[in-house]
Design a protein around this nucleic acid. Sequence first.
DNA 1: TGGGTTCAGGACGAAACGGTCCAGCTAGGC
DNA 2: GCCTAGCTGGACCGTTTCGTCCTGAACCCA
Lengths: 214, 214
Amino acid sequence: MSDEQVAAPTNRRRISQRGIATRERILEAANRLMLVRGVNATTLDDIREASQTSKSQLYHHFADKQELVRALVTYRGALVLQRERAGLERLRSFSGLVRWRNALVQANSLNNGRYGCGLGSMALELSDQDEQARSSLSETFAAWERLISDGLHRMRDSGLLRRDADPEKLATGLMAALQGGYLLANAAHDVAPMEVALDMALEHVKSFLVQPSR
Amino acid sequence: MSDEQVAAPTNRRRISQRGIATRERILEAANRLMLVRGVNATTLDDIREASQTSKSQLYHHFADKQELVRALVTYRGALVLQRERAGLERLRSFSGLVRWRNALVQANSLNNGRYGCGLGSMALELSDQDEQARSSLSETFAAWERLISDGLHRMRDSGLLRRDADPEKLATGLMAALQGGYLLANAAHDVAPMEVALDMALEHVKSFLVQPSR
DNA sequence: TGGGTTCAGGACGAAACGGTCCAGCTAGGC
DNA sequence: GCCTAGCTGGACCGTTTCGTCCTGAACCCA
């Protein structure tokens, strides 16, 4: 989020700067560790050590591990939406979509496809385990898709896309290709499947362009 | 597999029918539980209880939990490939692809999008945790994609698909759409995103048909 | 039927893990 | 500068969980 704390503290009476910083440090460490090892395979002691804090601080800022995980869902969601908003809010052309694709592919190629999408991996791990986390993740995905579909709406309104193009469905398709691409790239430790998947989705969007640039 | 044990016992000297049945029961229970709760969130005691066996049997048939998980990867891989082979080995037309899509969607709609793909969920959970499991899953995905691309090759050879269609890339796209669809459907508890994703991938294949049926 | 091998049951141990507690320190309003 | 409320460090506890071990039953072959 641009104008509010990414890690909003729970409403308490007095909160010191130090307290906020500690909470942020915990979330940052949890984010890093759980991206690599997964949520369930990461222990509180791991997080305590990586964040240079102590047990009591974990339990001062979060009621239990589940609440920490839920806070992490919010935290990651905010980070991803912040990043994606920067890349998508001015989307007005097909080449903008290509730039969006390239940025995602490049970022993922830095670690040879490993780790996947922070939201996608949590979605699979938590969906059948924590209903609140699931619905929160689902909303984040919806917001992400909306960033895409808003751009596609602009393209349709300006006459770039045909009237029969359905921005919502196209956005869902792009998101599925992205998430499936992340998954296959992670399994293969190679970014290539993600490229192929995104290119397929882009070709599909292209098929709705008024003047095919091919 | 049709002509070999799905759960091949490790090479031991004498193995009774009862022993094989026990091993199968353990794998079947692990498969069921880990699909719902995830690998790391499922304990050996859960499996012991669900399979009506005991601790010593688990450790008689598998060295440790990791080896059980690896055996499960093989087990699930064989099940999925068996199922998919049945649906794909005679794939020769676009309508065959539509039937394949419908079968997947229908199966997933039975539980409102929950649980996702047994291979995909393991891939995300294990890829950064067990290199052997990851490479095994990656190979299974490759074999699965090959079932699809073989069908697409047949379609291309018979003149249904244009010569410039790339069956391997199309298969990767279909697989990514499927896996991404599973993921989004699981997060949303609604099969709809999976339908949209697969339809996008099918449209993409359709765009390579010699005579567009639209 | 007898002897050795494999299978079953479950008690047991050790370590990891989530979570509690408390004593001392820090910060910010008055 | 004092005082209260919040923050920090880390020892500690109970449970869970992986893994071991030992006893007895079932099985196979001669």
